[in-house]
Structure formats: C-alpha cells, structure tokens
Design a binder for these strands. Structure first.
Lengths: 137, 137, 137, 137
DNA sequence: GTGGTCTAGACCACC
DNA sequence: GTGGTCTAGACCACG
C-alpha cells in the first residue's frame, strides 16, 4: 500500500490518510485482518508527525474500519463486500473532472494532459518498483 | 450559477468555492467578463462569513481566473494564466499524482484510468460546447 | 531584521511588511532558507493582529518570495519567480510609470531620472555585495 | 499637470491625488494662485468618481495647500519656497529603491530595468504630446 | 510551539 | 451598493 499526501488539496493530512485506508479497504486491496503499516513506519515514510498518523488510525478505529491491538498494531476489519467497479469509477471520475477543469484553466491541452498522465503513471511505477522494500502489500 | 458547500467532505469552505468558480469558468458556464455574485450576497446565501468568500475570490484573482474591481465587484477573466508553463505543469502533475494513487488504492489499472480520463475529457468538452453554443447569437 | 510600521504614510500595514521582507530578500539581508519571524511573534512585536501578518506572508508566498511550511514557519525562498516574463515586465512597467509621473511633478527631467536610477542601482548592488560577503565563510 | 493613479501601490486614490498636488506645489510646477483642474474634468480624465476628487481637494483645503472658491474652482496657495533639488531627488530615490528591489525579485536585470525605464519615459511623453488638449499647464 | 480556517464586526474607500 | 483593511478571538491541524 502506497500512501500519498497532497498538501495543496485543502484537506487535512489525517483526513487524507483516513480516505486512503478506506479506499484500500473498499477496493479489496486490504483483506479482513490485514495489518496497516505501523504508525512509526508510516510517519517516517511520509515525513510527517506520528501524532498525525495516530489520529487517523484512531478515528478509523472509532469508525470501525480498523481495530487496534495495543502493542501489536492496527488491523483492517472488513464487513461489507468490496465496491462494485462502477462505483469506484464514479469516485475516480470526480477527481478526474477536477483535474480536467484545472488543466483547462492552466491552458494545458487535452493531449498534453493525457501525455502528462502517462508520464506520472510511469514515474509512479518506477518509484513503486524501487521501493519494494517498504510496504509491498 | 448555484453554489453549494459540503461540510462533510473535509475540504476547506473557501477551496470549495474556488473549485466551483473554476469549474464554471472552464466549462463555459461563465463567459469572459461575467460578474461573480457579490461577496456580501454570496456570503448571505451560503450563510458563511464575508471573509471566507473574500479569501476564495482573492485566491482566484491570484490564479488569474477572476479580476476584482474595487467598488464594482469581481468578474470572470478568461485569459492566459499568469504563471510560467513549468509551474503550471508542476501543479497539474501534483493533481495527477493524487489521482494515480487513488486509482491504485481502488484497484483501477493504469489503462482503465487512461480510458476513464478520455471519457471525462469528452464529457467535459460536450458540456462546454453545449454551454457556449446554446446562448450564442 | 527590524520591522517597522509607519501609520502616517498611507500605505496598508500588510503592504509595508511585504515591502520590508522583499527588500531584505533582494538585498541579501535574508539568504535562501532563512526563517521569517513567526506570525505570532511579529504580530506581538509590531502590536498588530496576527491576521495582518498572515496576509502579508501569504501574499509574499504567491509572489514566490517566501514559502510557508505549516507547523514550521515561513522561510525565504530565493528562486525564480513563478510568473511569466510578460506579466513580470507589466508589473515593473506600472511601478516605473508611477515614478515617471512623480518625477515630472517634481520637475525632475528624464535625464536626471535616468541618472538617479543608475545611482540607486549602484548603491543597491554595493549594499547587497556587503551583505552577502561579510558573513560568508 | 498630469495625474496618475496606481491601483497596485496600496494607497487610497484620494491620498494619491493629494500627494500629486502637493508634489506639484512643492516642486514649483504650480505657482501661487494657479487653478487646479476642475473636479468634474479630473474625474472624467482619471475615470474615477467625482466624490473621490472632491474629497482630495477638500482635504487639501483643510491643510491650507489649496483654497476653494465656490462656483469658481480650487486654487493653489503657496506660502513656502519650492523644495531644493536635493530634497526632491531624495523623494524620488525612495520610490526608485522600491522599484529596484522589485526588479531584482522579478529577475529583471539592471540593464533591462534601465531599458524598460527608457521605454516607459518614451511612452509617457508620447501620451503627453497626444493629450495636449486636456491639461497643458 | 507553528500556521490555517472561520467568525463577527468595525471602519474606510469608492461607485 | 461594491470590495479592502484590520481587529479580536475561537478552534483546528501539525511538529
């Protein structure tokens, strides 16, 4: 599982982490009982404070999405079935719409935008391959 | 143009207003020179403070999307972004990275993501053409 | 760096702070990465409200002169302006126009004005060299 | 006498007008008893509201710099001798310093700045020659 | 400790 | 009526 923080999007960091854990659980990336990265590990990876991770996990625990076992870590608790593909596409489509608006505003053409997406996907995969040491779930 | 604030989505209020104005301008719903609702009026309508609207508008002015004329109001400005190309690409790349991470968490493949982008671009352009055509003389 | 507010000069307080930071950064008094006084601290020292300092810093951030790191503070950023060349020239041209009008009102000839500019440029560079040399190892 | 309003400098418009009248009087451009442009005329030329001009003139009257004669207009009242050249240079130097700082920040070289000044002076003189119909004091 | 967001309200400048 | 500035203060997010 790769986490990613966007400092420009206006959302609080702990909220972004919560969303990403929820997304991982909803999409089937996490199975029931799978462990989350440790607070300490994730804090180091994302270069943010441990309190921030702890807050995200603890809120998720309150929501019933994960369960903390003191001294062992946090574990995913899946009750519902994974989201249908159409639902997941719908979620992504909203994000993409924002990007498209922004591209238009920044005078980036549709083709340039597609090319840029390809570039970033490639960069993302390269980074992921390089970091197989960290969290290779 | 109807504005709407979602207090559950975790985004700052002024960011939500910015997004809605940006979307309106990019999609052709607003034309060059169209007036935005006045700060006071929109504040009252959304039942939030004047300063919050003022901040949103002022940030949009920095982006070059609108122009404020003291004593008259804010007006949409369809024109070149004042930012360098490299800066604009950098901004878009960040947005795309977030989407890519999201897609992976949702178990959506790179190719599906690309296809989804194409669909949304097409939908955006159709919407935009409809907006700019229907009221043109 | 000592900040000072002149309530008689007719300029907005946040504008005065911006000018002083800009001058410090341009003259070499601030180096790349140097921290600015914290919003709270400067507000207390100048006996003005936090928000006013925050506005000055935030505007400077848009100009690319400083960068804020939430939770850590603001830091001077000596780097390329994020604005297009044409926009930057336009801004300077406006400033120059004001000076030219002022010169004519003061019955200072074009040539005297040009000469004065040369003098001030020279003085500026001397000051800057002194600042950047004296504390270099 | 040419007036010029800078909407970027952070000063109120009526303050700018006051400064310019004072500068004209201080530099000897105006002699004792010379008429100021009429409120209506100047408002039209600067494309601002008549109230703004009226406020500037009335404040100047309060300062004793001008005298209003109802139905006839406003007239300059000079008591002191014009400023010495060194004083006028000092005033201009401050403005120039601001411009130099800004040029540095915007990555405009000293030579480019000098060239830009030449251009703006030329443009200013061209505009002045074209408008000899308005206020040719 | 840092900055960020939002509110409430005052007063000013300008149309 | 418009936006702009500033104050005072609350609460949040983050280190």
């Amino acid at each position: 599982m790769r986490f990613h923080i966007d400092y420009q999007c206006g959302k609080a960091v702990y909220v972004q982490i919560m969303e990403q854990v929820r997304a991982g659980a909803a999409s089937g990336l996490f199975g029931d009982g799978d462990p989350l990265p440790s607070v300490r590990q994730l804090a180091e990876q994302l270069r943010i404070n441990r309190n921030t991770i702890a807050k995200a996990y603890s809120e998720l625990e309150h929501e019933g999405v994960v369960a903390g076992e003191p001294g062992r870590g946090y574990f995913v608790r899946i009750s519902e079935s994974p989201l249908r593909k159409s639902v997941r596409d719908e979620m992504l489509a909203q994000d993409l719409d924002s990007v498209i608006v922004r591209a238009h505003q920044l005078q980036v053409s549709d083709d340039q935008l597609r090319k840029l997406l390809d570039q970033r996907i490639e960069a993302f995969n390269r980074r992921r391959d390089a970091n197989t040491d960290s969290f290779s779930k």
